[in-house]
């Protein structure tokens, strides 16, 4: 079991006067898959960087299992909070995929046998079992992302943060990502993902947090969130096309998928 609590967090970057995050309070608990959405520059990444102490809040605090994040270094949090950066090139530096996967757990002092086991499992989960001997630079951008995700999952953290994992992914990449999210849920992990892919978000997350200008505008299940077209407009978030269509048709029920749409249509025709 793990809990993450953000209490009245405010933050502004040193070199600019304008603050990025204003009085944010959120809490997450085991098994939750949370998507943070919103326009570029609203503070999504800045917020997630507070969860493992890369950034420290100006005011307010972040508690993980009731321990203030500021009390330990980012490196010490790494075993508990895994963070997948937006650009895998910043994260990968070894000469084979396998070494990347081994790096984290061996730093944590995990026994060799256990590491072997984890690598076998994780490489299959992220679809890298054929590429273990490859140089990460030879991978495609999408593969690099999965390699970076694998490197984080191999450390078995209780909180997994991913910054834009959906960017540049094709259908099979997104399918794999959905599988990973599903697995993390069964393991009772907290998974926090920053994404711009609304369809992916509605299909794979239990909870969506909508941010605009450093504030939280909406927070709830996908159905709740997307039933507020007015607020979403304010955040410059466009709902998935099928949801948009149902809303334009004036249906009161919020539709999130094609099958839901068909069902509702059938009901209305009868």
């Amino acid at each position: 079991m793990v809990t993450v609590k953000i209490e009245n967090l405010s933050y502004s970057y040193k070199d600019s006067a304008t603050s990025v995050l204003h009085d944010i309070s959120l809490s997450f608990s085991s098994g939750e898959r949370v998507a943070i959405i919103g326009q570029n520059g609203t503070g999504k990444t800045t917020l997630t960087k507070h969860l493992n102490g890369i950034l420290t809040p100006d005011t307010g605090r972040v508690l993980i299992d009731n321990v203030n994040v500021e009390n330990k270094t980012t490196a010490e949090w790494a075993s508990k909070v895994g963070y997948v950066f937006q650009n895998p090139n910043d994260q990968l530096f070894l000469d084979t995929v396998k070494k990347e996967l081994v790096f984290g757990p061996s730093h944590l002092g995990i026994p060799k046998k256990e590491i072997q086991k984890r690598i076998r499992f994780v490489s299959e989960l992220v679809g890298m079992q054929e590429e273990l001997a490859e140089h990460p630079l030879n991978l495609t951008d999408s593969e690099k992302k999965f390699c970076a995700i694998g490197a984080v999952l191999a450390m078995d953290p209780n909180v997994v943060i991913m910054d834009e994992p959906t960017g540049g992914q094709d259908k099979s990449g997104k399918y794999r990502l959905a599988k990973i999210l599903e697995y993390l849920k069964t393991q009772q992990k907290i998974c926090i993902v920053v994404s711009h892919d609304m369809r992916f978000v509605t299909e794979n997350f239990d909870r969506i947090v909508v941010m605009a200008n450093g504030h939280i505008l909406l927070d709830g299940a996908p159905k709740e969130v997307f039933s507020n077209p007015q607020v979403l407009k304010e955040a410059f978030v466009t709902p998935p096309p099928i949801t948009d269509l149902a809303q334009k048709l004036g249906w009161e029920t919020t539709i999130l998928s094609i099958s839901e749409f068909i069902e509702e249509l059938k009901k209305r025709v009868q």
């Binding site: 960087k49 493992n52 890369i54 270094t73 980012t74 490196a75 790494a78 075993s79 909070v81 895994g82 963070y83 950066f85 910043d90 994260q91 530096f93 790096f103 984290g104 730093h107 944590l108 490197a151 984080v152 450390m155």
Partner: peptide, 9 residues
């Protein structure tokens, strides 16, 4: 930052 997040002091 990226390396710290991977546990490198």
């Amino acid at each position: 930052e990226a390396q710290e997040a991977r546990g490198v002091q």
